[in-house]
């Protein structure tokens, strides 16, 4: 039994050492596993951001349940001035409508939006479909299948909204991420996918429309959804920084200034360029209004498409 005591002592030691390290550091929660698209941008954001604030920071990945577990941890840290979250669009503007979560869009102190990329409606280049009209026509005899990176994700919502608002006949097949969905598109298991420029370029796809209110530079011949005779649909993949409620105004201002300086820094710009992330800064008030607006719009799509639980 002596050996058991050793093991307990060792465990206790580990517990205390962790507690000692955790004090007085800024924790940046990334609600995805390390190495993902959001994590990489967060990790390149972190050094300049903490330098601007003059603190030491650690990126902590808290993954699971469509990024809501990590986001909930930020929301639940009310009043803690040493924790922020680097958040994806879905966790802030879609998931609260779909699930009973311990947070909503009002549960945060908004800091800034960092990047935003419009989404495209695209088909494989090997298909003979070159326009949205053609896609609609061909879907009449046999409905198409569209993929997504999971149920309740932006690619899912963008296509669901398109189907509801047009004559396009298409059904949803969710995958566990953009990669597997691209595999399915390459094997013609699915025919349509909505995603960003990064996906479009990497996998040699053909864009048929863009989910934005204006045509996008570099893709001038790709019409917007509104131009195709549909109601204006605005879907973009964006990320931003949020802090918990109940932090001091001074701290919130420090965060906001540090974020602005980071997004404008050459280092972050160079990185964003490489990762094809489109810098789209919004300050605290604009970001808050933006999230609220997206939350309402997405909720409407979910209701129209019959996806509300």
């Amino acid at each position: 039994m002596k050996s058991l005591r050793y093991s307990l002592a060792a465990l206790a030691l580990i517990g205390t050492s962790h507690a000692a390290v955790a004090a007085d550091n800024l924790e940046i929660i990334v609600p995805f596993a390390a190495g993902g698209a959001t994590d990489i941008i967060a990790r390149s954001f972190e050094p300049t951001f903490s330098q601007q604030l003059g603190v030491t920071s650690v990126v902590r990945n808290v993954a699971g349940a469509s990024a809501t577990v990590g986001t909930a941890e930020v929301a639940n840290s009310e009043g803690n001035p040493n924790i922020i979250g680097y958040e994806p669009a879905g966790a802030l503007s879609i998931q609260p409508s779909l699930k009973k979560l311990p947070y909503g869009p009002d549960s945060f102190t908004y800091v800034c939006r960092t990047v935003s990329n419009p989404m495209f409606l695209m088909v494989s280049k090997s298909s003979d479909i070159t326009s949205f009209q053609q896609l609609v026509e061909k879907s009449q005899d046999q409905p198409f299948l569209y993929g997504s990176s999971g149920p309740g994700t932006l690619p899912h919502l963008a296509m669901a909204a398109t189907v509801v608002n047009s004559d396009l006949k298409a059904e949803h097949v969710p995958y566990s991420g953009s990669g597997p969905a691209m595999n399915a598109l390459a094997g013609n298991e699915i025919q349509i996918m909505a995603d960003t420029e990064t996906i479009l370029e990497n996998y040699d796809l053909r864009p048929l429309a863009v989910f934005a209110d204006h045509r996008v530079a570099g893709y001038e011949d790709v019409p917007t959804i509104e131009e195709l005779g549909l109601p204006a649909l605005d879907f973009s993949v964006w990320q931003g920084v949020v802090a918990p409620k109940g932090i001091s105004d001074e701290r919130a201002k420090q965060y906001a200034e540090a974020c602005k300086a980071t997004v404008e820094s050459d280092k972050f710009k160079a990185f964003a360029d490489k990762a094809k992330a489109n810098i789209a800064y919004l300050g605290p008030d604009d970001f808050k209004a933006f999230v609220q607006k997206r939350f309402e719009a997405n909720k409407q799509v979910l209701e129209d498409a019959g996806l509300m639980p």
Binding site: Y6, S7, A10
Partner: peptide, 9 residues
């Protein structure tokens, strides 16, 4: 004991 404690840890 150390080995097992380490494994648990």
């Amino acid at each position: 004991g150390f080995v097992m404690g380490g494994i648990v840890m």
